[in-house]
């Protein structure tokens, strides 16, 4: 019984991270936007949905959508000034954004309850049926499928082709009549929306959130998933998310104090990342052939 609950828990986390990684893949892998602040959209979705449920009794289903929308509005506000920047500056801009959001969660106590967090976030209910345990797992994977479908559809579409072109050579794309800034902002907004959805799914699953779940380390974890899986690969994002969540589980059972375990986990991530970038720079899943038309 305990084992079953444990497995369900792990698989739910895998599902939530798959959504986060797919969302980041769209912005980073396909559009070339190095977004270090991805976690902020995850946090915004989680807090929006949780606060709506706790303070106003808004049902999960609406909270989830509103969480996604609020995240994507922040995404657009962040994208407008930063997508004009190139490479490193974009990375620094998004990093700054994540730090600002984190400190708002930490310090705007009257709204977010600060470091004490928000307890008692209700489970989703549909026609009297309450989603917990296994049914929550199903719910999460329904959203994983929807996210997969959306991202796949975008990437395969003529719109997605422009995203890839902007990534490859922004100047050439603009000489062909594409407005690179517009495309980057839309990609950013969709990516933020999906991350917001993931945040809401997390908040209503775990029922207690605090700012510590939304630190930069979390962003680094998601970026690692995308890179290890393979930049610009949908399968890669899924694989990377599952791989990095599942690999930390055996570590948990090592007979070591938790302070050491945390550090060990980070070491394993960075070690893996370095080894991979040396031996398989396109990721474990990347490096496909050109698409056929």
């Amino acid at each position: 019984m305990a084992l079953e609950a444990y497995l369900i828990h792990i698989l739910i986390l895998v599902g939530i991270y798959i959504i986060l990684a797919l969302a980041l893949q769209l912005a980073m892998g396909f559009t070339g936007l190095l977004n270090i602040g991805h976690v902020a959209f995850y946090g915004i979705g989680a807090y929006t949905s949780a606060l709506l449920a706790l303070n106003l009794g808004v049902p999960f289903w609406f909270g989830l959508i509103i969480g996604g929308l609020v995240a994507s509005i922040f995404g657009i506000l962040l994208a407008i000034p930063t997508t004009k920047l190139k490479g490193d500056y974009l990375a620094i801009g998004t990093l700054g954004f994540a730090i600002i959001i984190f400190s708002i969660l930490q310090n705007w106590i009257s709204l977010t309850n600060g470091p004490l967090g928000l307890p008692g976030i209700p489970k989703p209910i549909l026609f009297g049926f309450k989603f917990t345990g296994f049914s929550y797992l199903i719910l999460v994977y329904v959203f994983v499928l929807i996210t997969y479908w959306i991202v796949k559809k975008i990437v395969k579409s003529p719109f997605g082709r422009v995203l890839k072109a902007v990534k490859d050579d922004e100047l050439a794309a603009s000489s062909l009549g594409k407005n690179p800034i517009k495309y980057k902002i839309i990609a950013f907004a969709v990516s933020a929306f999906l991350a917001g959805i993931a945040g809401s799914l997390y908040a209503h699953y775990i029922s207690f959130i605090d700012p510590s779940s939304f630190t930069i380390l979390e962003s680094i974890l998601i970026i690692s998933m995308v890179i290890i899986g393979g930049l610009g690969s949908i399968g890669g994002a899924i694989f990377g998310a599952a791989f990095l969540i599942l690999i930390q589980e055996p570590i948990r059972f090592l007979p070591l104090p938790s302070s050491v375990l945390g550090a060990l986990r980070q070491m394993i991530y960075s070690g893996l990342l370095i080894i991979l970038l040396i031996f398989k720079p396109k990721g474990l899943w990347g490096g496909k052939n050109a698409s056929r038309n």
Binding site: S157, P158, F159, V162, D168, A290, N293
Partner: peptide
């Protein structure tokens, strides 16, 4: 060119279209 895109995709990008 767009080096990571196929030859055909490079040409398709020259078109202004609803699908974008």
């Amino acid at each position: 060119l767009f080096p990571e895109l196929s030859v055909m995709e490079n040409l398709l990008l020259a078109k202004q279209k609803q699908g974008e």
